[in-house]
Design a protein around this nucleic acid. Structure first.
Ligand SMILES: Nc1ncnc2c1ncn2[C@@H]1O[C@H](COP(=O)(O)OP(=O)(O)OP(=O)(O)O)[C@@H](O)[C@H]1O
Length: 673
DNA sequence: ACCGGATCCCTTTTT
DNA sequence: GGGATCCGGT
């Protein structure tokens, strides 16, 4: 049998061998915290603890997936599949589905995405006859989110002081009413409802306390109040709670994360064991020295010294490029060069890290042209496409007939001669009924002209037919394709988009989406291949069960710094190192770049051996050119660990030079045609 | 009611 | 660069 304790240092061993009681592992990047969690799980199982009584929670899907893979390596996939490993949200959804009678929702409830949220919030504002203009929508959503993260229901928010809360709590109340009427919940509800369920039903809580006797949580510095409370309740009885994290890597403050959760963990659990790890096994000392600059000044932290036996290593390379295009071009070239120089570095050992998702686009284009295989983590660009969102809405409606939001989305795609006036009449026909129910009401149909009655009947009969089909599990792609064809969606694109290529593109995206359902189904037992399950994993972006092919595995990874947390790559390109991008303009405006600095620390510490940082002098922003200054962080890098390659003329793509000149001329009003 | 065009937002970061 | 939204013509 695999020796679980082999290859661990004494502190790691200590943590792994503790079986019962609260345990905190507080340590810097790359010191093997995640390794402690995975090996500790293995050790629990070796000590005859049932795998299904172990709960491993992570923050991001990517981290859950990574952990699953590591555990598979130690325990084998049979054993690994028995324990629950996933995000807080995935775990809570499992509970809410199981205990649905005790929640405000009905079976097959669906998760509201951000567009649903906005739509419902608009409805709430309209129903209250408030005249808040659209720009306030995001503000109110953030109020509501904040309340939910603190586990406050609308009732409790009414007690909040201030003019804004007076309005916000009324909107919150209405918003919640509509969500529930549509049998939906938003992301924050997932946590709030679970805590509420447990608090109101001690017998249910007790059931789960008995089930999950051993709890392990990675990246604990990122938990918010609701998550802390959730775990506190679950662990109350046995207190076998192991949390692991690094206060210097706290980068989710904007989402309500409370660092004190980890810092004060020993105060909350009196007999808590604390283990610190100081040896970094990941990076070279050059990389660590650079990283340290950005956290040593942080207030409110446990100071941790990191050291590594990995030698000084290569210098960090910084390169300034002219444009965002030449940045992507340079990196595509550099990847080839790196592979030439270091044959052991495969595509999968390389990552492109950026501050925000939209930066991936140019790299995708460039990599496609250069035949560099890549995969993007966590970007919604595909799933955010209108045609894909519409496809999802078509399906959500089958799973949850009360989902008016989805109905509204797709009723006019393709156009069915059923517009605003028609909707108004359906709404007034029965204010308290879901739209789809009204559509099926014979006496409502009788109020319509034949020109509307015919398309509406065709629409509802397809919906009803496929609702019945999907009630059985299995063959999701086949049924979906037939559904989309019959209801006129799959072949409506030629009609909607004049440009034939665009129409074909969009149609193909829908086909690709249908294929993704096939992939979802592939590694599921037939009973689990239900539409509801698919939609749920889609909403949670939970692709942790997806099996990747070799080609896919051996790809360059494109991802944000946030989603790279917890991961490591031998070669990292940190791109877009420009003022207002990283650090982000919002942080600069608020004169609070602490979290950006920690984010930068996280970015640097992803690299094992090679680290490149690039910045561009100009970049397309909102469709127009913007001139960019190098990031203030670059100036802080210790000189002895960096090497500036900018002077060595990097190969610059022809068209980028032309672009740069054109913009130069444009700037001075010279017409260079 | 539909279509096309103009206009106006946006853009952190994730579940 | 792209989506949602509004407006005016058909
Ligand atoms: N005792 C050890 N001996 C050799 N390698 C180790 C040891 N402990 C950890 N490592 C390696 O160090 C690397 C970093 O480990 P791990 O990802 O667990 O760190 P971490 O503390 O979770 O990092 P982060 O804070 O960045 O998430 C991994 O490649 C791991 O295999």
């Amino acid at each position: 049998m695999y020796n679980i304790l082999e290859g661990l240092n004494p502190s790691q061993k200590e943590a792994v061998e503790i079986i019962n009681g609260p345990l905190l592992v507080l340590a810097g990047a790359g010191t093997g915290k995640t390794k402690v969690i995975t090996h500790r799980i293995a050790n629990l199982i070796k000590n005859w603890i049932a795998p299904d009584s172990i709960l491993g929670l992570t923050f991001t899907n990517r981290a859950a997936r990574e952990m699953k893979e590591r555990i598979k390596l130690i325990l084998g996939s049979d054993c690994a599949s028995k324990l629950f490993l996933g995000t807080f949200h995935a775990f809570c959804m499992k509970i809410l589905r199981a205990e649905v009678e005790k929640t405000p929702l009905h079976r097959n409830f669906t998760i509201a995405d951000d567009q649903d949220q906005k739509g419902i919030l608009k409805l709430a504002i309209a129903e209250l006859k408030l005249k808040e203009d659209d720009t306030d929508i995001n503000l109110f959503l953030s109020y509501i989110g904040k309340a939910k993260q603190e586990l406050k229901f609308p009732e409790q928010c009414k007690a909040n002081q201030g003019y804004m809360w007076a309005i916000a709590s009324r909107i919150y109340e209405k918003y919640q009413e509509i969500l529930i009427a549509q049998n939906m919940l938003d992301f924050d509800d997932i946590l709030m409802y679970t805590v509420d369920l447990w608090q109101k039903n001690p017998e249910i809580l007790s059931k789960y306390q008995e089930k999950y006797k051993y709890i392990l949580i990675d990246e604990f510095q990122d938990t918010n109040y609701a998550q802390f409370k959730l775990i506190e309740l679950l662990a109350e009885k046995y207190k076998n709670l192991c949390v692991v994290g690094d206060d210097d890597q706290s980068i989710y403050g904007w989402r309500g994360a409370v660092v004190e959760n980890i810092l004060k963990f020993p105060n909350r659990y009196q007999n808590c064991r604390v283990v610190k790890l100081e040896q970094n096994y990941r990076s070279t000392n050059n990389i660590l020295e650079a990283a340290n600059v950005f956290i040593s000044g942080n207030k409110q932290r446990h100071s941790k010294k990191l050291w590594s036996e990995n030698g000084v290593g290569a210098k960090i390379k910084t390169i300034s490029l002219q444009t965002d295009k030449s940045e992507a071009f340079y990196i595509a070239n550099q990847i080839r060069k790196v592979q030439y120089e270091y044959p052991e570095i495969r595509f999968r050992d390389i990552a492109i890290l950026y501050r925000s998702n939209h930066q991936s686009r140019l790299f995708e284009e460039q990599f496609r042209m250069n035949k560099i295989p890549y995969r993007i983590v966590g970007s919604n660009s595909f799933y955010d496409r209108k045609e894909v969102r519409d496809a999802v809405a078509y399906l959500k409606l089958l799973s949850n007939p009360s989902d008016d939001q989805s109905l509204l989305r797709i009723l006019g795609v393709p156009s069915r001669n059923l517009g605003l006036k028609f909707l108004e009449s359906a709404r007034t026909f029965d204010k308290n009924s879901a739209l789809l129910k009204t559509f099926n009401n014979i006496s409502f149909l009788d109020t319509l002209s034949p020109k509307q009655k015919t398309p509406l009947s065709a629409f509802t009969s397809s919906i009803n037919k496929y609702t019945a089909f999907f009630a059985e599990s299995g063959d999701l792609p086949g049924k979906t394709r037939a559904y989309f064809e019959e209801i006129g969606y799959l072949n409506c694109f030629q009609k909607i988009y004049k440009n034939i290529d665009e129409a074909e593109d969009r149609r193909e995206n829908v086909i690709e989406f249908i294929n993704a359902m096939g992939q979802f189904e592939e590694n599921k037992v037939p009973e689990e291949a239900t539409l509801t399950n698919f939609l749920e994993s889609f909403s949670l972006s939970d692709d942790s069960d997806k099996v990747e092919g070799e080609e896919e595995k051996n790809s360059v990874t494109l991802l944000t710094v946030h989603s790279a947390k917890g991961l490591e790559f031998p070669c990292v390109f940190l791109v877009g190192m420009e003022q207002n991008l990283f650090p982000h303009s919002r942080a600069l405006e608020e004169r609070d770049t602490d979290e950006e600095r920690r984010l930068f620390y996280v970015a640097i510490t992803r690299a094992k051996k090679l680290l490149y940082m690039t910045n561009a002098g100009s970049r397309m922003k909102y469709g127009s050119q913007s001139y960019q200054m190098p990031s203030e962080f670059l100036a802080e890098l210790p000189e002895n660990v960096i090497e500036d390659l900018s002077a060595n003329k990097a190969p610059v793509e022809e068209s980028s030079i032309n672009d740069a000149f054109k913009n130069f001329y444009k700037q001075f009003g010279i017409n260079n045609k």
